[in-house]
Design a protein around this nucleic acid. Structure first.
Lengths: 143, 143
DNA sequence: GTGAATGCAAATTCTTTGCACGAGC
DNA sequence: GCTCGTGCAAAGAATTTGCATTCAC
């Protein structure tokens, strides 16, 4: 039911070169290999793909993530910290809860918030095409 | 009831030099002069203050907005587009609805969403310390 | 072959910093 | 005189780009 990134590229006419395949592979494995909290930046992606193909250039990584983002295949996040971070777009949209102390990222979905967002946009005469919700929190002592 | 930025600086021990006063003044007038949609980036602030004092340095603008942000006096936003943008912190928190075509920014508050955010954080064992909600929309044809 | 993708390094853009000078107490 | 802020220019970090080469069809 859920297309792989490779399949999405094909269906959107994004040509898959060897380098792109590798980058796509690394991104696809991101959560499995590093957990849901994994939202690598370009440097991190570059270092992961470099381990497999050391000849790949960081310019290619930049170009590829940009391409994939524009094709709607990757989501780009500008969390606090300056560098853009990426993750595969998946059907089920989710938002992020970020631990301000550890940097850990928890993904969540809240249907009610989603609905309210649409309502707010409509209230101002807009159709919602995208949104970004980030919660920053501190872990409570377990009680 | 609502302190001016200058007052906040005094109460937080931020020394106000002539340059800082000028920057603060320009930020304070931002919404009045340019509308609620005004969220200037450093370049824009620099160009506004330069018109009044052409000797001011952009480094000072960068240093000042950083200082004020750390003092909790300014809010820094990383909207899409790469450059950080600023606005005065006001008591009443608000979020942003951004017109993806025109770049216009509408500020809104939705108490229900605010409450749900806290609930979500709590659900995962966190206290919410900050959040960011941006809606991106397209204006509907008036009906 | 031709057009697109890559690698490399240089260029850009945004932001920070080192340092000498200047302002205020 | 000391401390802190400022201006300037240089340094940094993140990202993009020009160009010659390479790759895929």
């Amino acid at each position: 039911m859920s297309d792989t990134i490779e399949q999405k590229c094909l269906s959107k006419g994004v040509k898959l070169t060897d380098q792109r395949k590798l980058i796509v592979k690394v991104i696809s494995q991101s959560k499995e290999a590093y957990g849901d909290s994994d939202h690598p930046d370009v440097d991190e992606l570059y270092s992961r793909v470099s381990k497999i193909d050391s000849k790949i250039s960081i310019a290619t990584v930049y170009r590829t993530v940009k391409l994939l983002e524009e094709a709607g295949i990757l989501a780009k996040h500008d969390f606090k910290g300056g560098k853009a971070r990426y993750e595969a777009m998946i059907e089920s949209h989710h938002d992020h809860l970020i631990d301000v102390k550890t940097g850990e990222i928890i993904e969540f979905v809240d249907e009610e918030i989603e609905k309210l967002q649409i309502k707010v946009a409509e209230k101002y005469g807009y159709s919602l095409v995208d949104h970004k919700l980030e919660l920053y929190g501190i872990k409570k002592k377990s009680q």
